[in-house]
């Protein structure tokens, strides 16, 4: 990737909603514009989602992609402390987990900055190979 990029929280690209079922939380990530979809799909892999939530969720992460609607649905098992009624976390339903995913950092080509929301960094940054958000498995 040689073109200039900026690094921004997912919150600049997408909104999200969390729902509960048993001990599982689903977090639907919805991009604000279609051109942002491939960035989320390529960078917020199920593995990186799990790494982002390390220590907060205990089970596997599944992912369902619906590109035509601009939605990626993450299903995180073991997210609710054994289930809503048993959960000792103050957020018994895991509603705030959608906010947690919006803190994931995404690298966005600078040419797409007009598609982004919220405050953005001033200047493009060219990433180092070991500096990729969410892990060191640069691609």
């Amino acid at each position: 990737m040689s073109e200039p990029t900026i690094r921004v929280p997912l919150r600049a690209l997408a909104h999200a909603r969390a729902g509960d079922k048993g001990n599982t939380s689903n977090v639907a990530v919805i991009v604000y514009a279609p051109e942002l979809y491939p960035l989320v799909r390529d960078q917020l892999t199920p593995e990186r989602f799990a790494a982002h939530f390390r220590g907060r969720i205990t089970g596997r992460v599944e992912r369902f992609e619906v590109a035509r609607l601009g939605v990626i649905n993450y299903v995180a098992h073991g997210a609710l402390g054994g289930g809503v009624s048993r959960n000792l976390n103050l957020d018994q339903y895991g509603k705030s987990l959608s906010a947690a995913v919006l803190g994931f950092e995404v690298e966005v080509p600078a040419r797409l900055r007009n598609s982004l929301r919220g405050p953005l960094p001033d200047s493009p940054t060219t990433p180092r190979p070991d500096d990729h958000p969410g892990g060191t498995d640069g691609h």
């Binding site: 909104h15 999200a16 909603r17 729902g19 509960d20 079922k21 599982t24 689903n26 639907a28 919805i30 599944e62 369902f64 609607l69 601009g70 939605v71 649905n73 299903v75």
Partner: peptide, 10 residues
């Protein structure tokens, strides 16, 4: 869209 995927897995 947010509600369509609320508490949905697949």
């Amino acid at each position: 869209l947010e509600q369509m995927f609320y508490e949905v897995h697949d």
